[in-house]
Design a protein around this nucleic acid. Structure first.
Lengths: 254, 254
DNA sequence: TATACAGATTTACGTAACGTCAATGTCAAT
DNA sequence: ATTGACATTGACGTTACGTAAATCTGTATA
C-alpha cells in the first residue's frame, strides 16, 4: 500500500505538518516523490513511523529518536535508561517546585502578610540551599555536622507562628543594622543590638549557638557576594559593618 | 542607590540579557535612561525584581508574573492556586511517562524481543486509554462496569511472561487475520481461527467473556477509525472482515 | 594624550516541535 | 470550465532567554 501525507497522517493520528516536518529534519523521508511533487510513503515508512511515535510517546526528543531508529547498531536500551534518568530528575525538580508553591499558598491563606522582605527571605533561603555544597563542607569541618543537619529539620518543623516570628526578627535585624550603619560605629549601642538580634534570628535555625560559629557566619556574609548583596542592597558596606559588629559582640575580635 | 544592568544583575544573580529582555517585554523597566542610553534602576525596581524572581522560582510564566506584579488588584493567591493545579497535572503526566519508560526498559532487559507489532500494542493501548471516556460509558452501559474495571487491574498485575504471551497472541491474531482476509471468506476455517484467537487475546484483559461483548467490540473496531486504522494498516477492509468473522463466530449474526 | 579595556547599547539569529496562515499547483468530478 | 479537496513550499509565531556582532561610553594607565 502507498500512502499520501493525509492518509498516513490519519492512520497514525498525526498532522500532515508533522509529516512534512519529519521529512524536513530527515527523521522520516517518503519512499518517493511522484511527478507532481507529492510525498508517497510505503509500508517501510509506516513501520518506521510507528517506531518513531512509540519513542515520542515516551517523551524522547526527535533528535534522539533519529539516532535510535536510524542507526541499527545504536543502543536503544541505553538511550532509554538515560532518558529515564532525566525524567526522574525532572520529577524531583517538579516536586520541589510544588512543595514551594504549596508552602507559599499556605502562608498566604494563613493571612500572613507577604511583605517584600518576607519573599526575599524565601529567596535567600534558596540561595543558601544552593550553596550548601560549597559552604556546607566548610561549616561541617569547622563546627560539626549537627549545626547543618538540624537547621533543615528545624525549618521543616516550623509552625506558621514561628515562621512569622523569624521573619519579623529578620526584618528587625535589617532595620536595626541600617540605623546602626548610619552611626558608623560597630561598637555602638545600635550596632550591638543588631548583632544581638542577629543571634536571636540565627538561633531559630541553628540549635547550638556558639560564638565561633556566629563570627564565622558573619565573615561569610562578607566573603560571599550573594550574602553581601543582600545586606548591602540598601547600604553598601552594611555587610562588612555587620561582621564587625558581630565580631565585637562575640568577642572574637579585640 | 542606583544600579546599572550589570550591578543589578550581580546582586540579583541574573544575566544582563535577562534584564534587557524584561525591559523589552515590559516586565521590568528601568527607572530612567541616562544621557548615554544606559538603563538606570532604582530601589523600586530592585524590589519589583525580587518579586519577579520569587514567582519565577515557583515556575510561573513571565506573562503571568507580569499580571501579578503589574495589577495591584490582581489576585496573586488565585493565580498561585491555578499554577499549583497545573503543576500537579504536569507531575501526573510525568509519572505516567516514567511508568511507561520503566515498563519498556523492563521488557527490553527481560530480553523480550521488541517487534514492531509489540511496540504498536503499547501504542494502541494508549489510544484505548485516551478513549476510555468516550467508549467506556458505552461499554459500561452495555456490559457492566466490571469488564472495564478489571481490565486495568489485570493489566497492572500482569507478569512478564503473561505480557509476552498476550503480545504473541496479538501478533498471531493479526497474522491469521491477514491470511484469512486473502481467502475472502469470513466463515472459513482461517477466519474462524482468527476470531477464536481474538477471543483468547481478549480474555487476557477481560475477565468475563460474553458473546455479546465480543461482538460489540468487533463492531467498535469498524466504527472507530483508530481501531480500523490498526487492523486495516496492511489490508484495508480487514477490520470489517474481522468483525464479520467474529459475528459468525459468536453466532450473533445468522 | 593615545590607548586599552571594561561595560554599555541595539540588532538579530538560534533554540523544540510543530500550528497556522498564505499563495499557489494538482486531481477528480461536475 | 469550474469547483472543492488535497498537495506543495515558504514563513512567521511560540518561551525565555544565550550568544555573537558591531558599535559607543567611561575610566585607568603608559
Amino acid at each position: 500500500m502507498e500512502y499520501t501525507v493525509q492518509k498516513l497522517g490519519q492512520i497514525a493520528g498525526i498532522s500532515t505538518r508533522t509529516l512534512r516536518y519529519y521529512d524536513e529534519v530527515g527523521l522520516l523521508k517518503p519512499a518517493r516523490i511522484n511527478s507532481s511533487g507529492y510525498r508517497i510513503y510505503g509500508q517501510a515508512e509506516v513501520d518506521r513511523l510507528q517506531q518513531i511515535l512509540f519513542y515520542r510517546e515516551l517523551g524522547v526528543s526527535l533528535e534522539s529518536i533519529k539516532e535510535i531508529v536510524t542507526a541499527p547498531a545504536f543502543d536503544g536500551a541505553k538511550a532509554l535508561r538515560e532518558h529515564h534518568e532525566k525524567l526522574l530528575a525532572k520529577r524531583e525538580q517538579l516536586n520541589l517546585l510544588i512543595a514551594n508553591v504549596e508552602k507559599t499558598i499556605a502562608l498566604t491563606e494563613g493571612r500572613i502578610t507577604m511583605s517584600d522582605l518576607e519573599k526575599f527571605e524565601g529567596f535567600k533561603q534558596k540561595l543558601i540551599d544552593d550553596n550548601e555544597e560549597k559552604y556546607g563542607q566548610e561549616i561541617r569541618a569547622k563546627y560539626g555536622d549537627e549545626a547543618i543537619d538540624r537547621s533543615n529539620a528545624k525549618l521543616k518543623g516550623m509552625s506558621q507562628e514561628q515562621y512569622a516570628e523569624i521573619t519579623r526578627l529578620g526584618n528587625e535585624v535589617i532595620e536595626t543594622l541600617h540605623a546602626a550603619f548610619k552611626t558608623g560605629n560597630p561598637a555602638g549601642e545600635l550596632a550591638q543590638r543588631a548583632a544581638d538580634l542577629h543571634r536571636q534570628w540565627l538561633s531559630f535555625s541553628w540549635d547550638s549557638y556558639t560564638k565561633e560559629a556566629h563570627a564565622g557566619l558573619a565573615q561569610m556574609y562578607v566573603d560571599d557576594e550573594r550574602f553581601t548583596a543582600y545586606y548591602d542592597a540598601k547600604h553598601p558596606g552594611a555587610a562588612a559593618f555587620l561582621r564587625d559588629a558581630i565580631l565585637l559582640y562575640t568577642g572574637m575580635k579585640a
